[in-house]
Design a protein around this nucleic acid. Sequence first.
DNA 1: CGACACCTGATAGACTGTTACATTATTCGG
DNA 2: CCGAATAATGTAACAGTCTATCAGGTGTCG
Lengths: 152, 152
Amino acid sequence: MRKSELNRFLDQAQAMCDERGVRLTAQRREVLGIIHAAGQPIGAYEILERMRQGGRKPAPPTVYRALEFLLQEHLIHKLETLHAYVACSHPDHPHASQFLICSQCGEVDELESAGLDGTLSDLARTRGFRPQSHTVEVSGTCAECAQGKSAG
Amino acid sequence: MRKSELNRFLDQAQAMCDERGVRLTAQRREVLGIIHAAGQPIGAYEILERMRQGGRKPAPPTVYRALEFLLQEHLIHKLETLHAYVACSHPDHPHASQFLICSQCGEVDELESAGLDGTLSDLARTRGFRPQSHTVEVSGTCAECAQGKSAG
DNA sequence: CGACACCTGATAGACTGTTACATTATTCGG
DNA sequence: CCGAATAATGTAACAGTCTATCAGGTGTCG
Ligand SMILES: [Zn+2]
Ligand SMILES: [Zn+2]
Ligand SMILES: [Zn+2]
Ligand SMILES: [Zn+2]
């Protein structure tokens, strides 16, 4: 069963929040679980939909508040080009958003490239620009989809 | 007067569209002019607002259709993190979207870094990913704003 | 003129996200 | 434990961004 993997993920998040003195409440944990379980970028209203399957009727602010918290704690990222959210693949330390997004199957691959970070910082500094955060989203075809296409 | 600069920009765009066999109609030209004249990222509804100052009452689809055309022809870019549009600073050849965005004054600086392009392509290829387009938006403080702040 | 492609106008609606205020839950000092 | 302060949640209404759809106009070509 794969549920234990999800639980490990959530427990790790819980432990991190405990350390930081912030509260991963049941609701926030549920939203984080839905995002992680989706395995793909998922929109706020789709999350809302899945929360409603438990009988409750949360409204948009509920999910947006949870998303705001999870973003602050670097447990999820927002994909600006998709208006969707994904679980962070290495939430133990803050970092910028760097993604490969397959336009065919929707899979995303989170990068964490110090080289890319450095290239961007250098570029910025040559312009006298002081960077604070960055968003990198590469759209294209993932390995699996490319293979399937060329083989087919 | 600065109007001649705007006209040169628009005439250049016109020439490029003529070459490509596409039509930079009066309406598209007007939208492109408004975006260029703004000098900063401008939202679709702000464009709409300015178009209405001529007495006409265009509706959202009007401006979105023009924006779609201008994006296709690489005459403008969309800033995904701002939901806003800017004129391309070197529209003579297609290229990916790379921007430094000052969060204080709103100025944007369009990069065109082959090095960044290469770094991204290399990163993608090590994952078997075939990139098609990318969006890079760095948020921070521009040189002027940083200077004003440190001096003040 | 008629047929066709393209552009435009206009209504309505979908999707994404926010404001404002009332209510409930949790924490903490006494 | 009690009560005040703080944090989190519930609820309704709304704002911002973008799209679907249908109808009408313009221009070219034969
Ligand atoms: Zn991450
Ligand atoms: Zn794929
Ligand atoms: Zn450009
Ligand atoms: Zn600035």
